[in-house]
Design a protein around this nucleic acid. Structure first.
Ligand SMILES: [Zn+2]
Ligand SMILES: [Zn+2]
Ligand SMILES: [Zn+2]
Ligand SMILES: [Zn+2]
Lengths: 148, 148
DNA sequence: CCTAACTGCTGTAGCGACTGGAGCTTCAAG
DNA sequence: CTTGAAGCTCCAGTCGCTACAGCAGTTAGG
């Protein structure tokens, strides 16, 4: 059995994050020592490492929860697992496409700027150009919550 | 002079977002009608369109604030403007590199899965593999706050 | 045995950039 | 004059942590 600090070191997940995962139900409530400190076994290490790797791949916590539930039923078909992963891949490709477009626009702006007065700055000019408003209704949330 | 709703339609920025921008100081406090409703002129349209376009390119609000301040001083050198844009370009390229790596790992996992029992699912297997823990200390926040 | 340093505990608040709702008032069309 | 859309303010929630504050338990050295 190990303390929360040792678990953190072993998995690379910070201590407050582990407590947070417990609070939101990703990790079961830990056993406690006589002095009320959390104690973890090897299974907890594996579970937390699984979570960390899924988070690294950008899966939102809800998806991680689903994956953990599925991982506990080894006899079932992995169709559900693969569907979650495919959704995540689609999402990542969507973000990639968008970022590539942004990269292009930014790089073009910068390349065209002569570096003189702000009045002539290509960056300010492009940002301020009313005609460039895309009429798309400000697509949904792009927040890429992808840590470590 | 136009109402907040018309300004929203003209710029593609939602009404609550406009009020939020005013609260955090990106837009000046709007004039009010007799009945306390906000009124906007053409300058407000230009300013908000500028903000929107900068946000589309992923500039954080703090950077947008700086860009707006600079845009109001047309005689100064645009070095500061270009520096902000270059930083943003670097950031976008960093995110691109990371997303490309994630895309590769996810796609590989999925390609290798035979689609049978979860016990044999390559996705679960890779996520659970303790040896795959990268020892990097969970790199800093990747949150890509890039709307519309 | 004592103390310092470290680690742990709980609870709350904050980040960024909005988004949504409750419960009102004002405005424009018919 | 009525109706319904659009406006107002204030507050809470989103996501995934992160950072305190103010304690208590643990560990190593002297
Ligand atoms: Zn990985
Ligand atoms: Zn320039
Ligand atoms: Zn653009
Ligand atoms: Zn599978």
């Amino acid at each position: 059995m190990r303390s929360i600090g040792r678990l953190a070191r072993e998995t690379g997940v910070k201590v407050p994050t582990i407590r947070y995962y417990e609070r939101v139900g990703l990790l079961p409530e830990a056993e406690r020592s006589a002095g009320n400190q959390r104690l973890y076994d090897a299974a907890a290490v594996r579970r937390l490492a699984f979570i960390r790797h899924a988070r690294e791949l950008g899966f939102p916590l809800d998806a991680v929860r689903d994956l953990l539930r599925l991982a506990d039923e080894p006899e079932r078909s992995c169709a559900a697992v693969d569907a979650i992963a495919r959704r995540q891949l689609v999402e990542i490709r969507r973000r990639l496409a968008r970022l590539e477009a942004l990269e292009g626009e930014l790089a073009r702006m910068l390349a065209q700027c002569e570096g003189e007065r702000i009045a002539d700055c290509r960056v300010i000019e492009v940002l301020g150009d009313l005609a460039l408003r895309s009429d798309q209704p400000a697509a949904e949330d792009e927040a890429a919550n992808t840590p470590g």
